[in-house]
Write a protein that binds this DNA or RNA. Structure first.
Lengths: 225, 225
DNA sequence: CCCGATTCTGAAGAAATCCTGAAGTTGCGG
DNA sequence: CCGCAACTTCAGGATTTCTTCAGAATCGGG
């Protein structure tokens, strides 16, 4: 899962990023709205944490832009205390949640989790595709009831595929979502190959079909009912 | 277990906190409703002790807010006058118990315990997982009937796992629930490692299975039937 | 059917994460 | 004030996971 943190107070931004990284989120940071917009245009995020009191504009404008372009990211508004107005405006504009400063990082985590779950899973924490099922709460994957032990990258990979069922995802997008934007232009996809190989092997050996289709020259497609 | 004490009479508030800390609760204090609301927004509590006669507003409003936001904390209303009105209003609004001043601290403890038990365990004070059982009333843990002596942290750790059976809990979350501090993102988890090691050792030596699974890169999971 | 581009594979080195025992510190009861 | 139990810190080692790499297999266009 990939987040964008829009916050100009560096120490807070870093704190959030560092905490959320521990929770296995991938975090990008932006400390101006300009930068935020650039990042949002260039990358795909699962949730955006948006401070609406930066100095180079009004954060609600970003939110408005997002919603006009019907982006699918979740948005959590962050604002200094006392501005109930912001809360109302934010939620009216389609933010998914609201958090007043100062807040506790565990609270932030809980909200992020909730927003992503609501967006992606529409309530449940269980994904099923015939014999294959993924429990995002217990972080387990099983085939016909039998547990399959996946490493972190394998699990993240499978989850990313599952969220994009039926769509072809490019290796760039995969790299982007599992590693972030810091892997040089002429990237080599060796690790993707390796992790996909290992993931496929584990699932096949557990008795699952191979739902991960390679699309030559394009990427991969998770082809499950 | 983490409590919030909302009470403006400092000596009473301190007394409650100090007593409940001895009972191994983690206590935060607030002496205005403002502060109380801030804390409630930012932290997760298991139970809130709410005096409804503070000077900056009406405690019942907080209760109303809580219930509207469908928070899961338990709430115990505390009121100075022996006014039946408050009791009725409070319970109608969804408080879990009511206590009239003056009261004995042991009485308070009993109620807190009961409320938490009701919330978390829906009735029992005994958690059983095959040969392992935890008695939250007696604060004892036993394996096949034989008592296992756990230190405070070990017990809290086990209880936290038990409450989150089947879910992966991050080390961040553990740190927050057992220590309460923020300890930021770049914390070091040495003490968690140590306490888990000791807890495991005691349980294993007593003849229990190792229900505490390490989930590499994620945290731990209590895997019990 | 051939050839370059792309993808897959297995193995091994590198890195991250976790565990452990022991030593140091704190806090509380006597 | 002392002593003991609990807690924390520390450093090394063990384990798991990630990345790299080279060669084999596969694909699609000409």
């Amino acid at each position: 899962m990939k987040l964008l943190i829009v916050e100009d107070e560096k120490s807070l931004s870093d704190g959030m990023a560092s905490y959320l990284k521990q929770e296995n989120y991938l975090c990008d940071q932006a400390d101006t709205y300009r930068m935020a917009l650039e990042k949002i245009e260039s990358f795909e995020y699962d949730c955006i944490l948006l401070d609406i009191n930066l100095h180079d504009g009004n954060g609600l404008d970003i939110l408005r832009t997002l919603k006009e372009e019907s982006k699918t990211e979740g948005v959590i508004i962050i604002s200094a205390r006392n501005s109930l107005d912001d809360k109302v405006s934010g939620l009216e504009l389609g933010a998914d949640d609201y958090l007043a400063k100062p807040f506790h990082l565990s609270e932030l985590r809980a909200r992020v989790e909730a927003v992503i779950r609501r967006k992606k899973l529409a309530g449940t924490s269980l994904l099923r595709y015939n014999e294959l099922s993924i429990d995002t709460q217990g972080r387990t994957v099983s085939v016909q009831g039998r547990l399959v032990e996946l490493t972190r990258k394998e699990y993240q990979l499978l989850l990313y595929f599952a969220y994009n069922k039926g769509r072809v995802v490019s290796k760039n997008a995969i790299a982007e979502h599992l590693w972030g934007d810091d892997m040089g232009g002429s990237a080599n996809y060796d690790f993707i190959y390796t992790h996909i190989k290992n993931l496929r092997k584990k699932l096949l050996e557990a008795g699952s079909q191979d739902y991960i289709q390679s699309v030559y020259g394009m990427g991969y497609k998770f082809a499950a009912p």
